[in-house]
Amino acid sequence: MNPTDTTEHEEIIRTEDLGKIYEENGIPVHALRGVTTIVHKGDFLVIAGPSGSGKTTLLNLIGALDRPSRGKVFFEGRDLSKKSKSELASIRLHRLGFIFQAYNLIPVLTALENVEFTMMLLGVSEAERRKQAMATLQELGIDELVHKRPNEMSGGQQQRVAIARAIVTRPAVVLADEPTANLDSTTGASLLDLMERMNKDKNITFVFSSHDPQVIQRGRRLILLHDGTIKSEQSRTR
């Protein structure tokens, strides 16, 4: 399917001929080989594919976490290849949210503080960030966890806090790398429900990289990668 099929939506991210080569033990590994695609506002997009297909690499490149070996990533019209390290950090802080497979909460902070953290980096006042963090935790139904540290929470609870951390700053896009991989299917489904609700109710754009069938099934757009190239791309109506 041609990515231009969805041009009626606002474009947030566009990749052009994106390539990434890693060196592994001195041998070049082509993780991505010329990927061109678009992420639109409100997408619930899943990048799927077998291990080593390049899905996480693509997610990292569009998330300004890594630089491509060739090609370009445009984020809200800005060419990321021309941005400095500090400017990329600023884009990640202001415009992106991240959800990781291993949750990656800050272990010495409570759930509330973890959610507040990115707002602190944004310079939001203590009172305001506390208010917003509490509201987000309540919205996700985990306000009873506010004073718990990550080691006192289950995997599902930690990932919910991670979702709260990712969305609290109202980012343009939330990038989720294998968010259900460490969770049982029931917990995974409930988290996907939650993210779907955020997508529908708040029009938050989600981009997943996953090979979990239930994530793939939920995606309204699906990009299937194979050996670093787009094998197929499809939109679904739900």
Binding site: G63, L65, K85, S86, A89, S90, R92, L93, H94, L96, F98, F100, A102, N104, I106, P107, F117, T118, L121, R165
Partner: peptide, 16 residues
């Protein structure tokens, strides 16, 4: 190191 990676991923600048 992993934790610092996460801090940087969520937008913490090197100076901070």
């Amino acid at each position: 190191i992993r934790e610092f990676g996460v801090l940087k991923a969520v937008g913490m600048k090197d100076r901070r």
